[in-house]
Every structure is written in C-alpha cells, then in structure tokens.
C-alpha cells in the first residue's frame, strides 16, 4: 500500500456498469455507496413503479363505489369470485418463494436448482396470468367490459397493468432460464437473478395491495352508502381539519 499512483492511468471507474454487476468483478472498483449500481437502478425503477401503481390504485379507489352510486351494473360486489381470486393470489405468492429458492441456488452455484426454481416461478406466474385471463373472460360474459361502466374501466386498466407486469416478469425469467440452459449462470453473476427477483417480489407485493383494496374491502350496499364514499375521498381527509380551522378566532 505504499505506492503513489500519480501519473498512472486509472481504473474504469464509472464505465461499463450496465453489463456487469460490478459485484464480484475484480476489475471494477466498488461504488461510492458500496451498493451494486444495477441493483440500485432496479430499486429506483421500483420506486417509480410504486408511483405508477399508486396512481392507478388511487384512481380505482376514487371511483370505487361510483357505479353503485349511479346504478350502473355490473357491480363489483356481485361479480367478484373471491375464493377463485384468493387461490390465484396464493399461487402468485408461492412464486415469490420459488424465486427466493432460485436465487439461493444461483448463489450456491447450483445451476440445476436454478433452472428448476426459475421454471417453477415462471410456471406459477403463468398460472396466475392464465387465471386472470379466465377471470376477465368470465367477467366479460357477465357484461363487465372496459367501457361498460367506470368500475369496468378502472378495474381492467389496474389489474391489466399488473397482469402486464407479471407477463414481462415471466418473459424475463424465461430469458434467464435460456441463459442458464446455454451454459449456466455463475455464482458471481447471481445479481442478474437477484435483480429479476426484486422485480418479481415487487409485482407480488403490489398484488397483495390490489387484492386487498379491490377484492377484499367491502363495497357500498346501495347508492346512498356509495354517495358517502364519493371520489376525491383523499381530499376529504383534509376536511377532518374543518372543525379545527373554523374554531380559530377568525
């Protein structure tokens, strides 16, 4: 450690990070934070994706009881088959477990385990998407379409957006599977699997939120109750301060 490196060419600090994780590569210096740049990128993307889903969910929530309020069927509480969707939600949750097992396999350098668990994850994801497709066609038969009422519009766009996320995840996992079949993924490239896993877990967690807010929380029983839960409910939170502000001496 006693060499002055003045006048000597420097390292590839800052370049070429998008193909290699940096982690485990001797020719890449550690980053300023010590975190892998690609993993950080995925975390940032997920932050962004949270806002995507946040907007979709907020919109759904503000229109939640609108169709009931207006008397425009089909109504959500009549059309949902909660046991069915619970099963597919459970399938998706299980895929997070297999994803963890896949990552653990690749970190051990166990390529066979990796293939099995990645394939299982993709399969479980495919079962979920297939289930969603079946659910959508059933709903459509019962008259709920994208343009049948505001419930249909906000429901299909929200769950469809999530389904598209799962689909992209499956394609990603299958691509990793192909890479693993054509020579394997070494343990030092485990970050490739880990990043896909981050995405996959996020999509699962989002489904838990959607499943709770869209399916599980009861809907209004009739138009009167629905009016109470009218849109811009998130702004109504502010009216809680009404008494406080009107009580002020001005």
């Amino acid at each position: 450690m006693a060499t002055a490196i003045e006048l000597q060419p420097e390292t590839a600090h800052g370049a070429g990070h998008d193909a290699h994780g940096g982690q485990g590569h001797a020719d890449h210096p550690p980053t300023s934070t010590g975190l892998n740049s690609r993993k950080m990128l995925m975390w940032l993307f997920l932050t962004s994706d949270t806002m995507f889903f946040g907007t979709l969910i907020a919109t759904y929530m503000s229109y939640r009881n609108r169709s009931i309020e207006l008397g425009m069927p089909p109504y959500p509480n009549e059309i949902f088959d909660i046991p069915y969707t619970s099963v597919s939600a459970f399938v998706l949750l299980m895929s997070s477990l297999t994803m963890v097992l896949a990552l653990s396999a690749v970190q051990r350098g166990d390529n066979r385990g990796l293939r099995i668990w990645i394939a299982a994850t993709a399969l479980l994801g495919a079962i979920f998407v297939g289930g969603q497709f079946f659910e959508f066609t059933t709903f459509a038969k019962e008259g709920l379409t994208l343009d049948s009422n505001i419930f249909g519009s906000s429901f299909y766009v929200l769950t469809g957006f999530h389904g598209a996320h799962v689909t992209i995840g499956i394609v990603w996992l299958l691509s990793l599977l192909v890479v693993s079949l054509r020579g394997g993924i070494p343990a030092e490239k485990a970050a490739d699997v880990e990043i896909a896993g981050l995405y996959w877990h996020f999509v699962d967690i989002v489904w838990i939120v959607i499943f709770t807010l869209v399916y599980l929380i009861p809907y209004a029983d009739g138009p009167e109750e629905a009016v109470e839960a009218a849109p811009e409910a998130f702004l109504r939170v502010l009216t809680l301060g009404d008494r406080l502000l009107t009580a002020l001496p001005f």
């Binding site: 450690m1 060499t3 490196i5 000597q8 060419p9 420097e10 390292t11 590839a12 600090h13 370049a15 070429g16 001797a26 020719d27 890449h28 210096p29 550690p30 300023s32 010590g34």
Partner: peptide, 28 residues
Amino acid sequence: EVDQLPERSRLGVAVAEAQAEEGNIHLP
C-alpha cells in the same frame, strides 16, 4: 494521506492501482 480516507475510498484506490498496472483506461 490515503490512510486518512474512509475504507471504501481506500479500496477504490487499491483497485485503481491494480488497473493502473495494466495500463489501460477502460471505456464503454
């Protein structure tokens, strides 16, 4: 004094030295 640097930066310097011996600047 490199020793005054935080550990991560010292690591960076070490890798820099290693690369410097190869004599190439790595570019995308």
